[in-house]
């Protein structure tokens, strides 16, 4: 199993640190504190890298593995930050039969990341999504608010190039 530590360097502001500490202090010792603690932490940092999960484990006095186990069980939590450009590939039925699966796989390869991850430079993150209501344009992907439709794998390089600078 691949090591799931995020490759993107982790930065924390004193303000974020203080917010998290306060939330953990309030939750410590209460039953079922971990879920709200992780939700709060994700709200503050946008994602839950090892540095944040270690703070949660220490703050609640529970094992790091327990924190990680919960964070990987629920799809609402993400271990990786979102990139400057968030790529979402629709894997809904219509897009999927039109070949969005290959687009998704090709993007993984081109960006060198897995679904749910972010490139090391923080530029691109890749996610799969369900139907975005543009089935007429299938297969579809979005990059932030831009929508690209009727795609084939060969189109991807040109699209990515637009965001490279």
């Amino acid at each position: 199993m691949a090591n799931k530590k995020s490759a993107v360097p982790f930065n924390v502001t004193p303000e974020q640190e203080q917010k998290l500490n306060q939330a953990l202090q309030e939750l410590k010792g209460t039953r079922g504190a971990l879920m709200p603690a992780l939700q709060k932490a994700q709200e503050i940092f946008g994602y839950l890298p090892i540095e944040v999960q270690q703070r949660v484990a220490l703050g609640l006095d529970i094992p790091l593995e327990e924190v990680y186990g919960v964070s990987t069980f629920y799809s609402q939590f993400t271990l990786n930050p979102k990139g400057q450009y968030k790529i979402s590939v629709c894997l809904g039925t219509a897009c999927y039969v039109k070949g969005s699966g290959s687009l998704y796989e090709a993007l993984k390869e081109k960006l060198g990341i897995d679904g749910g991850e972010c490139t090391e430079d923080g530029k691109f993150s890749l996610d799969a999504c369900r139907c975005i209501g543009a089935c007429g344009l299938a297969p579809v992907l979005t990059i932030n608010d831009d929508v690209y439709g009727r795609l084939i794998v060969d189109d991807l390089d040109d699209i990515l190039a637009k965001y490279q600078n």
Partner: peptide, 19 residues
Amino acid sequence: GVIGPNDRGFKTHIGCAFE
């Protein structure tokens, strides 16, 4: 508690934090 269940469903496996 250095080991525990990670991921969910069919992918569930016992391992350490952050694999």
